[in-house]
Simulated assay, not measured.
Amino acid sequence: MQRIKSISEYRKSLHDIVIEESMKAFAKHGIRAVKMDDVAQRLSISKRTIYEMFGNKEQLLVEVLKTYKAAKEEELNEKAANCQNVIELLFYAYYQKINTFKKTNPLFYSDLVKYPSVIELLEKDREKAHQSYHDFLKRGIAEGIFRKDVNIDLITRLLDSVTSAMMDDELYRKYAIEDVFRSIAFVSIRGICTHKGLELFDKTAI
């Protein structure tokens, strides 16, 4: 019984290690450039072992994305619970996104749309992001940082559209990623701030 438990723990540990190493490889080289053989060699294990755990490269990629997004979501939720206001949260997310993009090969994002399972996952995440934007705006209004006459549903949809356009048009390839996210934050968010919100925004942006 103990031996079965040990094998199970080893498999779980190896599963996590494969995801972690694959995440690093995909981010550095892009998805299509990384083969299952490459991951196996990096970890000194057989390719068969990886296939037994994940089935194929696309499923491995899905697990990588799920793991990464869950970690970032937990990190952001913890920050949201402890920050003083939505402006502080906004700039935390702003710098988090910039750092992620800077560390990631643009090919990674271009390659994502080539996998049907990934597209399905991203669509589900888009629905969650929609709710997150909605909650963010409601909190900002309650804190007196965003205007009360803001149409929350409309602004949420606009933010969603801007984010989608950034990815679909690969704006991260054409412009500095700081400029892309700054334009989204400064134009879309600053424009709905109250006087109190503007003061906080400009103070934090310095």
Rank of each mutant, 00 (worst) to 15 (best):
E58T: 07
Q41R: 14
I45G: 12
A81P: 06
E170A: 06
L90R: 04
Q96R: 14
S164W: 00
E74H: 08
K79Y: 09
L43W: 13
R190C: 05
L107N: 13
S13Q: 15
R190L: 10
D38L: 11
K124T: 11
R42P: 05
S6M: 09
M36Y: 05
Q59H: 12
Y95D: 07
K174L: 03
K174R: 14
M166W: 00
M53L: 15
E20C: 04
R139M: 06
V39A: 03
K28N: 11
S132V: 00
K79V: 13
E178D: 15
G197I: 03
I152Y: 04
Y115R: 03
Y92T: 05
A185I: 15
F181P: 02
Q84F: 12
Y175D: 01
Y115M: 03
A25S: 13
I50W: 05
V150K: 05
K28M: 11
S8T: 09
K102F: 03
R190P: 01
R190M: 10
F26V: 04
K69N: 10
D202E: 14
K72I: 13
V64R: 03
A70I: 04
M53Q: 12
D135S: 03
E63K: 07
K12G: 00
T104N: 01
S117C: 02
K66P: 00
K12E: 12
R32C: 07
D37K: 10
V62E: 01
I31S: 02
D179C: 06
K138Y: 00
L154A: 08
K114I: 04
D16H: 15
K148S: 15
M1R: 12
K72C: 07
I7D: 12
R182G: 07
E63Q: 09
S46A: 10
K12S: 09
V86R: 08
I145L: 13
S164P: 00
F201D: 02
I45A: 13
R182H: 14
P106S: 05
D38K: 13
D149L: 11
D111W: 02
V180A: 03
V18Q: 06
H15C: 11
S13H: 14
V118I: 08
T204C: 14
Q2S: 12
F146W: 10
A93D: 09
K28D: 07
N151R: 13
Y92M: 08
I4Q: 13
G55M: 06
V62A: 04
A176L: 14
